[in-house]
Computed example of a mutant assay.
Amino acid sequence: MSEQANAETDSVHTARGPEVASRVGIALGTALLICFVTGLISHGIQHPPSWFWWPANPVWLYRVTQGTHVISGVTAIPLLLVKLWAVYPRLFERPLLGSPMRALERGSIAVLVGSTIFELSTGLLNIAQYYPWKFFFPTAHYAMAYAALGALAVHLAVKLPVIREALGRPVNSNAGLADADIMATRHVSRRAILTAAGVSAAAAALAVAGQTVPFLRWAAVLAPRSGHGPQGVPVNRSAAAAGVGDRARDPGYLLTVAVGERRRQFSRDELLALPQARARLPIACVEGWSASADWSGVRLRDLLAVVESYSGGDVRFESLEGGGIYRNSVLPQRHVVDDRTLIALSVNGETLDLDHGYPCRLIAPNRPGVLQTKWLSTIEVVT
C-alpha cells in the first residue's frame, strides 16, 4: 500500500479510544511512579521516621532524586491532559455506577483523576513558591500521593484486560469503537496525537530540567530558579523575608556551640581564626533547582572539638529567625563527621551574602537546601 493510502487510512481512525489512552497511560504511569518514589525520598529526608536512613555520599544524590521528582511531575502534566482527552467521552457513559465492578472502576477513576490533578497542580505552584491555600503543603502532598497510587493500582487491576487488548492492536485499529466515536475525531490521527503527547512531554521536561542540569539552563524557560542569585547561587528565603537582617549584622553577634555540659560562644572573627576548610557542594532545594558552589569555613566536627571531644550523636541547628518550621534542623551523625560538612563563612571566594546566611550557615553534603540552616545562632549536640 502506498504512503498516501496509509495516510488516508490512518486519518479516518479516531484518536480517542483505548489505543491512545493505553499507550499514553503507560508513559503517564511511569512518570507518576518515578515522581512518587522520589517524593517519598524527599519527604523521608525532611521528616524522617525512625527507620529512615539517608547517606552523606554521594554528595549529588539528593540533587538527582529531587530534580527527577520535579521533572517527572512536570512531564506528567501534558501526558495527563492527553490521557483525559482520549477517554473523555467514556468518563460520562451511562450508567455512572451500575454493577459493583463498574462502581469500583468509576470510583477509582474519580479518585485517580482528582488526586493526580491535585498533586500536579499543587506541585507546580510549589515550584513557583505560590501558596494560595491554607493547608500545609508537604503533609497534604504526601497524603494525596498515597491516594493517587492506591487509585492507580485499583484502576489498573480493573482495566488490565482492556489495556492488554488495546496494546495488542495496531495503533490504527477501530476495533471495539462505536461509529459515533469514530466520526467524532476522524480528522485527527492517533499517530499525530501520540507524537504530540511525546513532544509536549519532552518540551515540558526540558523547560524545567535546566534548573537541575547545568548544561540545559539555556532551555529552562519555566524554571523560576536556574542559577541566578547573589554570588551565583539562587535564594529561596531572603534575610528580609526571614526578618533577621538586624540580628545578622549585629557587631556583637555570637554563635553558641554546646557539646554535652560544655558551652562556648564564638564571634565571626573567632570562627575565621580557626582552621578553615573548603568543599565544593551542590545546594539543592525541594522545588527542584540546584547549584554547585565552592564553600569555605570551619569543619563542623573541628568546631565541636574546640568545645569538647565529640563522641557521637546528631547535631541540632537553630537559626536567628524568630519563627517558622525550618528555623531548626537536625543533622544525622553520619553527616556530622563528614569532611565536607562546614559551618560556612564564605561562598565562591566571597564573604557570605546576607541572603545566603551571613554571618554563618550550615552546608552539608546530600541534604535539601531547606535543612541547610542559615543565620546560625546555636549548634548543639543531641542524643
Rank of each mutant, 00 (worst) to 15 (best):
Ala209Ser: 12
Ser99Gly: 10
Leu120Asn: 14
Val188Trp: 07
Ala202Thr: 15
Gln129Phe: 00
Gly150Phe: 04
Arg169His: 13
Ser99Lys: 07
Leu167Met: 07
Ile109Asp: 04
Glu165Met: 05
Ala166Leu: 12
Ala103Asp: 07
Arg186Lys: 10
Pro161Cys: 09
Ala166Phe: 09
Ala153Ser: 10
Ala157Thr: 00
Gly123Gln: 12
Lys134Thr: 14
Pro95Cys: 11
Ile182Asp: 06
Ala196Ile: 11
Ile193Asn: 08
Thr185His: 14
Ile182Lys: 15
Ile193Gly: 08
Gly123Thr: 14
Gly176Ala: 07
Met144Ala: 13
Trp133His: 04
Asn174Glu: 14
Tyr131Lys: 12
Arg169Asp: 10
Met101Ile: 00
Ala209Val: 11
His187Met: 11
Ala148Glu: 06
Thr116Gly: 08
Gly150Ala: 15
Ala103Asn: 11
Ala148Phe: 01
Met101Arg: 00
Thr116Arg: 14
Asn126Phe: 11
Leu112Ala: 09
Ile163His: 04
Arg191Glu: 01
Met101Trp: 04
Ala180Tyr: 05
Ala207Gln: 07
Leu177Ala: 08
Ala145Glu: 01
Gly150Ser: 13
Glu165Tyr: 06
Tyr130Ala: 13
Leu120Asp: 03
Phe137Trp: 14
Ala103Lys: 11
Ile163Gln: 07
Pro132His: 14
Ala204Pro: 06
Val154Arg: 12
Gly123Leu: 12
Arg164Gln: 13
Leu120Val: 03
Pro138Arg: 05
Leu152Cys: 15
Ala151Phe: 11
Gly107Pro: 15
